[in-house]
Computed example of a mutant assay.
Amino acid sequence: MKKAIILTVCLSFLSCNTYIDINRYSHHTERYKFHFYHDFNEYIYYSKIYGKAGDKLYYPYHFNIKLPKKIANWGSSDTNFFFEYNSKQIIYIKSDYQNPGIEDKWVISDYYGDISREYSFIWYWKERGYNIRYLQGEQENRINKLYSNGKIDIILYNIKPENVEKYLTLIKSFKIVDYDKREE
């Protein structure tokens, strides 16, 4: 009995420290591919789902991006994506639908927003036990950055100072991909 309790405690401790990108092969669906490499992950989004208003169709941007290792959880809602890392570090990608004339001028700035209201993941924050006030504004000893071209925002939220440079370097790999010419 004592051995069973110790084994259960050890297994639950180990399960808390697992990441979705450790010792896994690439994963794909009809909407995305997730490649798990040794030094980084690559997320490729190429959904066939589009929006419609009246007679007009709105197609999402298809893209690929390199992401840091040790993803604890991730998800998407419409054209918004989040990738959560340990210690509540979050990378958000807020993409719009395709518009002619998108600029390729990307700018990095400090981010002072409130991700609990700006994005549609309230269910996620509640499910993961976040205090909504924790998602509002700056946290001590953490850094928030926005990488944007005006149509697509990539937010580094609540990032530890020692991770900022590495995370920024990886997210700068973001590229819009022509769905018809993507790699298979």
Rank of each mutant, 00 (worst) to 15 (best):
L7V: 00
N80K: 13
T29H: 03
Y37G: 12
G75L: 01
N80S: 13
H27A: 00
Y111P: 02
H35E: 12
I20Y: 01
Y37I: 13
Y50F: 11
W74T: 01
R117N: 14
R117C: 09
P68F: 05
L57W: 13
D110K: 07
L11N: 01
Y45L: 05
D55L: 10
D39K: 07
Y112C: 11
G113T: 10
M1I: 03
N73F: 04
K66R: 12
F83L: 06
Y37A: 12
L57M: 14
V9R: 09
I6M: 04
F82L: 06
Y97P: 09
I91R: 01
Y43N: 00
F121T: 01
W74A: 01
I65H: 00
E42T: 05
S12A: 09
Q98H: 13
S95I: 04
F13Q: 04
H28D: 11
E127Q: 07
I5S: 02
I22D: 11
I91L: 06
D55H: 13
P100F: 08
I44P: 00
V9H: 03
Y59S: 13
S12E: 03
I49Y: 10
G129Q: 04
N23K: 10
V9I: 09
Y32C: 02
Y92A: 05
Y43H: 03
S87G: 08
N23Y: 10
H35Y: 11
S116H: 07
K70T: 11
Y111A: 03
E127D: 12
S26I: 06
R31Y: 05
G129A: 03
H38N: 13
D55C: 11
S95R: 00
R117S: 15
G51E: 14
H27L: 08
W123D: 13
P68I: 02
D110V: 05
S116C: 07
Y61I: 08
H35G: 06
H62W: 07
R117H: 15
A53S: 15
S116E: 06
R31W: 05
H62K: 08
S26V: 05
G54C: 13
I91T: 01
Y85P: 00
E30C: 10
P100D: 07
T29W: 08
S95K: 01
N86W: 12
Y25D: 15
I108H: 09
R117K: 15
G101N: 11
K94Y: 09
L57P: 07
Y45S: 06
Y59V: 12
F81V: 01
Y50Q: 12
T8P: 00
L7D: 02
T79P: 04
N41A: 08
R31V: 03
Y25M: 14
K69W: 07
S77V: 12
C16T: 10
